[in-house]
């Protein structure tokens, strides 16, 4: 089994170089995989992945299509359970608990580890109801509390000023970028610890992308964020740490600065400079 990779220890684990002094302050580990293997039928999609995700930073997963980055992302809240042919070995820990353990409540796990997808997927309901619905599912009934959380979440997602006068209009009338921020508001309304984002800006125009990126930088003050992106510059702009995957393997995991200015592995260098992938 690969030793567990953390960016600061990456040089002596994944990247095989000499140990370096930490470039970021020590943080608590929020999520961790140990010897994680995932098969889709006979296809080995993740190969012995061991890595740690620290709290309240943005960690980016990069790599060519099919490298396993989205598959790994979905492991953290057991979204892969929905696919029949999937077999998982090894461990995934969230807050120190094995999420495949017998006592794990998947609903509770997904409340703790929220997710935002590539395509925004608001419910065909009002803006207000998109957030209130998630709260009511959790048993929140008090109208005042619901209104307050709706406002806080929309403010947290930098959407409040744009929608405060039309909260009861259909969410489907919002622009693509606004819909994606509404999905982020919906995710943060239930106060998760982690937000997983699978290419959250890939379907947006540059202005909407910039807003989502700015929002991610604000959200990391309160949440741990893991983002999958194909956009190298986006990873460089918004993430603190970056993990590069290729053919199901974790090739290199380090501070974003190191990955994008002086990666240790030639494969990483070739990928981030666009020479392959």
């Amino acid at each position: 089994m690969n030793p567990v990779a953390t960016p600061n220890a990456a040089a002596s684990t994944v990247t095989g170089g000499s140990a370096r002094a930490p470039e970021t302050p020590k943080r608590s580990v929020v999520m961790e995989t140990r010897g994680l293997e995932l098969h889709y039928g006979n296809t080995r999609a993740l190969k012995d992945i061991s890595l740690r995700i620290d709290e309240k930073i943005v960690t980016a997963f990069i790599g060519p299509s099919g490298c396993g980055k989205s598959t790994l992302l979905r492991c953290f809240n057991r979204m892969n359970d929905l696919i029949d042919s999937v077999r998982i070995d090894g461990q995934v820990l969230v807050g120190g608990f094995d999420i495949h353990g017998p006592d794990m409540d998947v609903i509770q796990l997904r409340k703790r580890v929220g997710m935002v997808f590539q395509r925004s997927n608001p419910f065909p309901k009002s803006i207000h109801e998109n957030i209130a619905f998630a709260l009511r599912l959790q048993g929140v009934k008090d109208r005042g509390t619901i209104d307050q959380v709706v406002e806080e979440s929309l403010r947290g997602a930098a959407l409040w000023d744009e929608v405060k006068d039309r909260l009861h209009s259909s969410a489907l009338g919002l622009s693509g970028g606004q819909q994606q921020r509404l999905c982020i508001a919906r995710a943060i309304a239930i106060k998760p610890t982690v937000i997983l984002m699978d290419e959250p800006a890939s379907a947006l125009d540059p202005i909407a992308t910039a807003r989502v990126e700015e929002l991610i930088l604000e959200l990391k003050k309160d949440f741990t964020i893991v983002i999958v992106t194909h956009n190298m510059q986006q990873a460089a702009r918004i993430s603190d740490r970056t993990a590069f995957f290729y053919l199901g393997e974790l090739i290199e995991y380090d501070t974003t600065k190191k990955i994008f200015t002086a990666p240790s592995k030639k494969q990483t260098e070739d990928y981030v400079t666009g020479r392959f992938g």
Partner: peptide, 8 residues
């Protein structure tokens, strides 16, 4: 500056 250049 190098870090900023990596942000394109």
């Amino acid at each position: 500056a190098v870090l900023l250049l990596s942000h394109a």
